[in-house]
Design a binder for these strands. Structure first.
Lengths: 231, 231
DNA sequence: GTACTTAGTGTACTAAATACACTAATTAAT
DNA sequence: ATTAATTAGTGTATTTAGTACACTAAGTAC
């Protein structure tokens, strides 16, 4: 063990969840490489090195804004990853050399997870970064560095929070139907829920209130729209 | 906002809990200063800067071993504190100058909480550090830097874990009575529990098993001793 | 107006949490 | 040996939360 302290780089990485079309998605940055800048070599979580006069939460907000034009969204720190070799998987060596001065430099990353109302925000790639892309959680490829582990812990935390706190609405439009909310729970928790029991529980929690408005443009009985009470 | 990354120092700080004599205690390092090294100026959580070839968890283990001779104990990362000015409260300026080269240097700290069987380990101060001392959680003075906030979040997490996971035994001797376990819950959660309901719940969880041994040397009916099953 | 689709609703059963009071075993003092 | 003091140990009834389950209602497309 080395007897001297040192000064690693610090980054933040964000696991950004969205829900759309009955699918749980995560926002990934496409890292391209090659002569024509066309060959996709891998995907990574949105992240960046910490700036000098910036708090950790600030950095996470900045990352989401710069890389995906996301602003004012639910954001929560969940774990810090600091293994010595977390950047140095064989698959990442080549890529590291194209982007960083010193591929051996140590980087400790503080991970956040984040919930986005996909109807309100359409991520746009900043020009300097790779393209930001929503990827179905079921179809996420192997990611750069230890981002697989980060994503997987982020997903675990999302599930925990969803079962204990009322955060489901952070992933839905302001106005939503009870069936939408239920599908969200079913998909994230990967289990079927009973419609009547689900609604009974919601009623007891009284966290939502009905609007005087109904669903439109559907080819079946239109559902009552609800919204969250902030009380 | 500064447009350049930088390399702050990284430290780990540990919120170490112990339980003894019906009191929840936390391990603090006494920081002394002055001509005779006798004037106590403040207490701090055990912590140290991260070494070069050391993972975060390793650093936390090292800190506990070096500062308190604690080894092989329950240890869990819970939050990373990175405010720009977290070291720079007015009360800390003087002290910083005596210990660190640059009192303006930024330090980001990864916080752990830790559970200790106090009967097995008696902390001993390493010579180079301040004295390690168990302090009743109710009597903790204002700590150095932002350690008040770290302690307070650590305590919050201890309470959450105690209600959801079976971690109570980490704070008790290997052999314990049900009343001891109940008092531990009562004191940490700061609420009274019903004896019969508490025992009923334990029975259902079947996480403990009775030993063929009874409490000794008490001036009342001796209680059955139990131990945790690891199964 | 018929077929299709999803919305919306109540009741009976089961499991978990709560409220509650007395007897048993030991020590210390007399 | 008896008594006082102290904590250990035990069961039942009630309330609350969770589960299982099936039909009618409101709209669209044809």
């Amino acid at each position: 063990m080395s007897p001297a302290p040192h000064n690693p780089n610090i980054s933040v990485d964000c696991v950004v969840f969205g829900f759309d079309q009955d699918e749980l998605k995560v926002l990934l940055i496409e890292q391209t490489r090659g002569p024509k800048e066309k060959v996709v070599i891998q995907y990574a979580l949105p992240g960046d090195l910490l700036f000098k006069n910036e708090g950790l939460d600030d950095a996470a907000e900045r990352v989401l804004y710069d890389l995906a034009s996301l602003k004012g969204i639910y954001l929560k720190q969940f774990h810090t990853f600091g293994d010595i070799d977390r950047l140095h998987a064989a698959k990442d060596q080549e890529w590291l050399q194209t982007f960083r001065e010193d591929p051996k430099a140590r980087v400790i990353t503080v991970a956040y997870y984040s919930l986005v109302k996909m109807d309100e925000y359409e991520p746009q790639a900043a020009s300097f970064a790779g393209k930001a892309e929503w990827v179905n959680i079921e179809e996420v490829p192997s990611l750069a560095f230890d981002h697989d582990a980060i994503l997987s812990m982020g997903l675990e935390r999302l599930r925990e929070e969803l079962e204990t706190k009322n955060i489901g609405f952070e992933l839905l439009p302001k106005k939503f139907t009870l069936s939408q909310l239920q599908r969200l729970y079913e998909i994230i928790l990967a289990k079927k829920l009973d419609k009547r029991n689900f609604r009974k529980k919601l009623k007891n929690m009284s966290a939502i209130k009905p609007l005087s408005e109904k669903q439109k443009g559907v080819l079946h009985k239109p559902a009552q729209l609800f919204t969250y009470k902030d009380d």
